[in-house]
Amino acid sequence: MTLVFDGDRLLAAADVARTALVEDGQRPGRHLESTPEGEWAVAHYFEADLPGYRGWQWCVVVAGAPGHDEITVSEIVLLPGEDSLLAPNWVPWNERIAAGDLTPGDMLAAEPDDHRLVPNQIDTADEFRFDDDTADPDDIGQIAGEIGLGRRRLLSPEGREEAAQRWHDGDFGPHSDMATAAPFNCATCGFYVPLAGALRPAFGVCANEYSADGHVVAAGYGCGAHSDVAAPRGQGSPAYDAFDDGVVEIVAVTADSGGDAVS
């Protein structure tokens, strides 16, 4: 003979579930619903009035067994409802961090397998050579650094390409509003300091304190503070003739019989 447990007793055991919540230190609200969770278990849902958990519900699972009248509490859990206030999906820190997030005192370690870096013994092709292969002391010094003197890891070709693309597309690239409005580009400016290595033909640093001072700029970038910009000539505004506001016009005024002034 198979004993069948009376499931109605589990569905009606809201008081048992509420008591379990109270004994757990919670303050459940009104009972919302009872849902069968299997042949011998029922979940009871209660409103949860907790700060920061709008729309969440307490769920208490009660259970029984054939041949036993005792009702036991299997689980107490806080669950979100349909209109619950939920936190955004968790994203690892290394995917959340963005440019400008680093502040004084912060430490940001590059991953061991960071594709932007390679061990120092790898040839990164970062040296810049002139077409006639003439040796330059600065180039020789840079090559010495690239083969491992002083740095454990170097910028990889992929890292260099990504940086170049960001700079090219950024505020100091050749297609920015400032560059398109400028009559000259940085490659011909006396304030332009070219970078060393493979990026030298395309990028440099601006040394003009009144312009993009200290920023990496594309050779095709430009601004109105180019070293070849000519100063305006003549007096007054370059767009309008000077106005002499020192001339005074004297007007004679007489009074008629009606008391009105007549010039």
Results as ranks from 00 to 15, higher is better:
Glu82Lys: 09
Met107Cys: 06
Arg160Phe: 12
Glu158Ala: 15
Thr124Leu: 04
Leu155Gly: 05
Glu127Trp: 05
Ile76Gly: 01
Gly150Glu: 08
Leu86Asp: 01
Pro88Val: 01
Gly141Glu: 11
Asp69Phe: 09
Ala163Ile: 08
Val118Thr: 07
Glu146Leu: 13
Leu154Pro: 00
Ile122Arg: 05
Pro104Tyr: 07
Asp113Ala: 14
Asp126Pro: 05
Trp93Lys: 07
Ile97Thr: 12
Glu111Gln: 13
Ser74Phe: 00
Ala65Asp: 06
Ile76Trp: 00
Thr103Phe: 06
Ile76Ser: 10
Pro92Arg: 06
Asp139Phe: 04
Asp169Ser: 14
Glu161Ser: 15
Ala163Asn: 14
Glu146Asn: 13
Ser156Trp: 04
Arg96Ile: 10
Ile76Cys: 12
Gln142Ile: 08
Gly145Glu: 13
Ala179Phe: 01
Ala179Val: 00
Gln142Gly: 12
Arg129Ser: 15
Val91Ser: 02
Pro92Asn: 06
Leu155Asp: 03
Leu85Arg: 06
Arg151Tyr: 11
Glu161Lys: 15
Glu158Cys: 09
Ile71Asp: 00
Ile97Pro: 02
Glu146Ile: 02
Leu149Val: 03
His115Ser: 11
His175Pro: 04
Leu108Glu: 07
Glu95Ser: 05
Asp136Ile: 01
Leu149Ser: 07
Asp123Thr: 08
Arg166Lys: 09
Ala109Phe: 15
Asn120Lys: 00
Arg153Ala: 07
Leu79Gln: 11
Leu155His: 03
Asn94Trp: 13
Arg151His: 03
Pro137Glu: 13
Pro157Val: 13
Ser74Cys: 02
Ala65Met: 05
Glu75Ala: 00
